[in-house]
């Protein structure tokens, strides 16, 4: 009870700090802290999978993306609007209070209407052992509701294409902060790069039985990519080479091929033939999502070797 209240209150206070008043930079930092506390909240609520995803993607990658966008906006030297807009605050207050009441009412009504017979989840829990998986979330993502996951991988790919389209031809690659010149970076990269890859592959493998899986693993790879870009070990390229293109589409492609291949052998569309197919699809997804996130961070169509 005490910890529930503490975490819930902490979330609200941090959201307040991130959104209302203060400088934007402070707001971004508070937003990242908000993500970390939300990570604790997921863990406390009993979902280590969500905690890992929130820490790596919600707080980590999103925070890095917003930070680099902030840096680029400062560099462009665009006119910063003064926050907040006083002209709109009175009406906004009414709308926000109404929305708070609405969400609260829906939430409390849903909680009091809980009957405890979550049929779908129960059936899923019973069928899970047949798939050879131990982690129900991986089961839902890859086996039971894999059409959603396939579309999700496609959406991530679409985000990359849309971002390229939005940035246009003239700004093939966006500016990046200069790599810090310190002798510590080489040992950092040399140690962290292989370790992160090992942990990512471990997460992918463990995800079939324990918390973890392709998304968490891809976020780790994305974090490594961001580190390599920031330290100048990897630079932006004006065009994607064939390896980058292959990496971008491999997740969607492998997923589609396995799903369609099932039709050939007479099984239903997107049926999963065995645990090896789960690993195959997850590995392909991990590469695609991780690479896409790094490219979105670098703001470039492709990656090349060392940045000067």
């Amino acid at each position: 009870m005490v910890i529930d209240v503490f975490l819930a209150l902490g979330l609200v206070v941090l959201a307040w700090q991130a959104l209302i008043g203060g400088s934007l930079f402070r707001g971004i930092v508070m937003f990242i802290v908000f993500g970390m506390v939300l990570t604790l909240a997921w863990a406390w609520l009993g979902s280590p999978d969500l905690a890992m995803a929130e820490a790596a993607i919600g707080a980590g990658v999103t925070g890095a993306l917003i930070m680099i966008a902030y840096w680029r906006l400062r560099r462009i030297n665009a006119v910063e609007p003064r926050d907040p807009s006083p002209a709109r605050s009175r009406l906004a207050l009414v709308i926000a209070v109404l929305a708070t009441g609405l969400v609260g009412a829906i939430g409390l009504a849903a909680v009091s209407a809980l009957t405890g017979d979550a049929t779908a989840a129960r059936v899923m829990n019973e069928t899970l052992p047949d798939t050879g998986l131990g982690n129900p979330i991986t089961g839902v993502l890859i086996v039971f509701r894999n059409l959603d996951t396939l579309l999700e991988v496609a959406v991530v790919l679409a985000a990359y294409i849309a971002a390229r389209a939005a940035l246009g031809r003239e700004s093939a690659d966006l500016p990046l902060p200069p790599a810090p010149d310190t002798p510590l970076l080489t040992p950092l990269v040399v140690t962290l790069a292989p370790l992160t890859m090992v942990v990512a592959i471990y997460l992918l493998k463990a995800g079939s039985q324990y918390p973890g899986g392709a998304f968490q693993a891809s976020a780790l790879l994305a974090a490594l990519g961001v580190l390599l870009v920031l330290t100048g070990r990897v630079g932006p390229a004006a065009a994607a080479n064939w390896l980058t293109r292959a990496g971008l589409v491999i997740g969607t492609l492998v997923f589609c091929l396995v799903g369609l291949g099932m039709l050939v052998i007479g099984a239903p569309l997107l049926a999963i033939p065995g645990i090896w197919a789960v690993y195959l699809i997850e590995a392909a997804m991990m590469i695609s999502i991780g690479l896409t996130l790094v490219l979105l961070f670098a703001g470039a169509p492709g990656l090349s070797g060392k940045r000067s």
Partner: peptide
């Protein structure tokens, strides 16, 4: 050990900056 390593490098970078 990993956290120690990360803390060392990030503290170093922040101090330098």
């Amino acid at each position: 050990l990993m956290a120690l390593f990360a803390a060392t490098v990030s503290a170093h970078l922040i101090a330098r900056r």
